[in-house]
Nucleic acid binder design. Structure first.
Length: 813
DNA sequence: ACGTCCCGCCAGGGG
DNA sequence: CCCCTGGCGGGACGT
């Protein structure tokens, strides 16, 4: 049996012949993607409203007439054609495209409001749907299953679903992201890419080991469905271990997007990961193919939901289909822990015991003693609705604008800060004022006597080195601020990917003298396309326009000033006065080196500790050590003023966080509450961070550093507290961990990432560390691992930093 | 020729 | 036993 041949021949012909009549010449032979025909674009809102108002009535009405919503449009579209032809060849034979799952999904979605009022639940009867949409039942299942995976619908019983709309989406995505992080998908992706790059299998045992350690470490993540409190599966049958494949797959697919930093996932990689997770068996060709096919199904639905969009990733190997996340940025874990969506492993696939509902709920609400009372559904509902309200206000579902805007601000802030440090016009008084304003006691006032800028190179720094060594800088006030100096040569090597940002004033050692217009140089690769409806575009553009190297110093500092005035309470932007010497050149040329500042916990912690809930976290901070780490050179504060490494400029970036803001940030209190969990909280700024790091060259493109909001930063911690499990690999135990903390005043949260050299070398030799930390083209076995922890607990992941650089290009269809 | 993915067989299982 | 579910993959369509 074959798929019935389509009567394409005729219809095709018909269409081609008709077209010229309606629209001369230019009209494409096929109806194609004639936008006006889209039933879901202009009309959809109306339709949604209608259907929202009275779905039943509408459907009945529709049924009576021999046209449904879709064919209505089609008819309209082909109205003329029909006339011309004169015969009633049932509507123009839908081409394959018009039967696509995506289109069907659109039709399906058009029937229900995105945000149904909670009071009146809308139910979905599969029979009705199939009838009205003129599709086989089978197809609807595909759609519904994916929707179910996002908790946009949930099954009540046979044939019966409830429509939730996008209400749950934020939470779902958040949960998925979290689980995705726990599953270490980033590493897996890297692993796959790396292996892929290494030309085929080398049939080595080492490969398997890698895979094993990477994949194996993801525990029993196999067939688990991520649920949300309150949206559990009814109908125990559905809870059965089977029949979740598509749902689970869908979720995992989404996770990949949420976790990876350019939020682009190629089908190939996705398929491999999804397969690899189930069983480490070698790539079965057919299995792979099937997986891909499913992924297409899922992708179609997700596309209809506008969560993803098809793009193409062009690598050396050629053009590969991929999808880009276009859904909302996932908020950090700002929710109450108790309510937080929990990933549950309801059904261990192998185990023969069908998971009882009890088990599920147990997994849903990890009971920690008395927290159980929270489970009461009414309570949950209450808080949930509050949450929803807050979310509405804040940002989420309707417009990602706000988040993006804050991201923009944050990035701007980072850039400006780094630049303005050189350009700083800030007087001592201003600084003092600001310090006093923000947190007089936590942050010691600047030295009354600002030391004059020293201009001699620091003796500590191996000036002879052409490559740069990491440098540690004590904070002038607290004496504990650290910074790392990056090797500039990395900067231009890195294939950067700009996730929609037109940021270019980042280091590029090779490009000197470029004044403006360098945005083109740096942003060849952009996914930004016709997303005109998106808010972020505005700030993005203005940023690109503003952030030019020759930007006026006044402008910069003024803006910084302004910003800090706007948020006087919430953030403290302290800028160290730096010498003017290094200033002038960096105006026109890019600084060739970067000094990444480590914010240190300068405050007395009183603020945090005063908060009763945060007590636990406060204790965490004590696990942090501030001892200088290998290869990092401590410098006396007195020498801070001038770090004049030959041929390089140092851009100190000092972002402080004020205790006040911490206390106010919900994120932090949350991470505090869940301090025991190893879960890492997603942070919207993580992509910003990653972007920055990648751009700078700290980490290779593709690698991402999970960012977590933390209460306490751990500037430098030494040793094995932070070293964890590690599947037998020995390269970690010796590793020192460097942790960075950034604080985003905009998001009112700070986040930490840490670097851990896996193959530490000479402890006292700075150069060695440099090599460990930063990719050294020739250096094998120097693969630091990245990790991030939101708490003081150990959490070291085995990332591979040494990823082959590849041209990555993303293009539209 | 290859990327996409429609179509529907058929097995599993609930009612 | 009927019918809902949904895994699965052949092979058609699109480019």
């Amino acid at each position: 049996l074959k798929t019935p041949l389509k009567q394409a021949a005729t219809s095709q012909l018909v269409l081609t012949e008709r077209q010229p009549d309606c629209q001369p010449l230019t009209t494409p032979p096929k109806p194609k993607e004639t936008p006006p025909a889209d039933p879901w674009t202009p009309t959809s809102n109306l339709k949604m409203l209608i259907s929202a108002a009275s779905p039943e009535i509408r459907s009945r009405e529709q049924r009576r007439q021999l046209s449904d919503s879709s064919s209505e449009v089609l008819q309209t579209k082909h109205c003329l054609q029909e006339h011309l032809l004169g015969d009633e060849y049932e509507k123009s034979q839908p081409s394959r495209k018009e039967k696509s799952l995506g289109l069907l999904c659109h039709k399906f979605l058009a029937r229900y409001p995105d945000y149904p009022s909670p009071s009146q639940k809308s139910y979905i009867c599969l029979d009705e749907v199939t009838e009205e949409l003129h599709v086989e039942r089978r197809r609807i299942y595909d759609i519904v299953n994916v929707l179910e995976s996002l908790h946009m619908v949930s099954r009540l019983a046979r044939n019966r679903y409830v429509w939730h709309g996008r209400h749950n989406l934020p939470q779902t995505l958040q949960a998925l992201k979290k689980v995705g992080e726990e599953n270490k998908y980033i590493q897996q992706i890297q692993m796959i890419k790396k292996r892929e790059y290494e030309h085929e299998f080398d049939a080595d045992g080492e490969r398997n080991e890698e895979v094993a350690s990477s994949f194996g470490s993801s525990e029993q993540s196999e067939m688990s469905f991520v649920e949300l409190p309150g949206v559990e599966f009814r109908a125990a049958s559905v809870n059965g271990r089977k029949y979740k494949s598509l749902r689970v797959m869908s979720q995992k697919f989404v996770m990949l997007f949420l976790v990876s930093t350019p939020q682009i996932v190629s089908l190939e990689v996705a398929a491999k990961i999804l397969i690899g997770e189930d069983q480490l068996e070698d790539l079965d060709k057919s299995k792979f193919k099937t997986k891909i096919r499913r992924l297409y199904d899922i992708a179609n639905v997700l596309s209809s939901l506008k969560l993803i969009k098809k793009v193409h990733v062009t690598e050396e190997r050629g053009r590969k289909p991929a999808f880009k996340w276009t859904g909302p940025e996932v908020l950090p874990n700002t929710q109450d822990t108790k309510l937080e969506a929990t990933s549950t492993t309801c059904s261990p696939p192998i185990s023969e015991s069908i998971p009882s509902k009890e088990q599920c709920s147990k997994a849903l609400f990890p009971s920690k003693g008395k927290q159980n009372f929270t489970r009461h559904s009414s309570l949950i509902k209450l808080v949930k609705s509050i949450e929803n309200d807050r979310r509405k206000i804040q940002s989420a579902p309707t417009s990602p604008v706000k988040i993006s805007a804050s991201m923009y601000l944050f990035l701007t802030f980072l850039l400006e800060t780094s630049f303005s440090l050189f350009l700083s016009q800030m007087t001592a008084e201003e600084m003092q004022m600001k310090c006093a304003l923000s947190s007089p006691e936590a942050v010691p006032k600047p030295e009354p006597s600002q030391q004059p800028a020293l201009s001699q190179p620091l003796g500590v720094c191996p000036a002879s080195h052409s490559s740069v060594s990491p440098v540690i800088l004590p904070h002038p006030q607290s004496g504990v601020s650290y910074a790392i100096y990056l090797h500039p040569s990395q900067a231009h090597t890195v294939t950067t990917y700009s996730p929609g940002f037109m940021l270019q004033p980042l280091p590029c050692a090779n490009v000197t003298g470029i004044k403006s217009n360098n945005s083109k140089v740096f942003n060849k690769i952009t996914t930004e396309e016709g997303d005109t409806q998106r808010g972020p575009d505005e700030p993005t553009k203005s940023l690109a326009a503003e952030e030019r190297p020759e930007m006026k110093s006044e402008t910069s500092s003024q803006r910084c000033l302004k910003r800090s005035q706007v948020l006087p309470e919430n953030n403290l932007i302290k800028r160290r006065k730096s010498d003017e010497e290094s200033l002038d050149t960096s105006l026109t040329f890019f600084p060739s080196g970067y000094l990444i500042p480590l914010t240190h916990c300068t405050h007395g912690n009183k603020a945090e500790c005063s908060n009763k809930e945060k007590a636990g976290v406060c204790s965490l901070q004590h696990t942090a050590y501030s001892s200088p780490i290998t290869g990092v050179i401590p410098m006396p504060a007195s020498e801070l003023k001038t770090v004049n490494i030959p041929a390089f400029h140092i851009t100190p970036l000092n972002i402080m966080l004020s205790p006040n803001s911490i206390a106010a940030a919900p994120v932090l209190s949350n991470s505090c509450l869940s301090s025991s969990s190893t879960s890492s909280a997603p942070n919207p700024s993580s992509s910003a961070l990653n972007f920055m790091l990648q751009h700078i060259g700290l980490i290779p493109a593709g690698v991402q550093v999970p960012a977590n909001p933390v209460l306490q930063h751990v500037p430098v911690s030494s040793q094995s507290e932070n070293v964890s499990h590690s599947s037998g690999s020995t390269n970690v135990q010796e590793g020192k961990v460097i942790e960075f903390t950034f604080y985003s005043p905009i998001n009112e949260s700070n986040f930490v990432f840490s670097l851990q050299p896996s193959a530490p070398k000479e402890p006292q030799e700075p150069q060695a560390v440099t090599e460990n930390f930063f990719r050294t083209p020739g250096g094998p076995n120097t693969e630091p691992s990245l990790s991030a922890n939101s708490d003081g607990t150990q959490r070291t992941s085995q990332g591979t930093l040494h990823i082959p650089q590849r041209k990555l290009e993303v293009s539209e269809d």
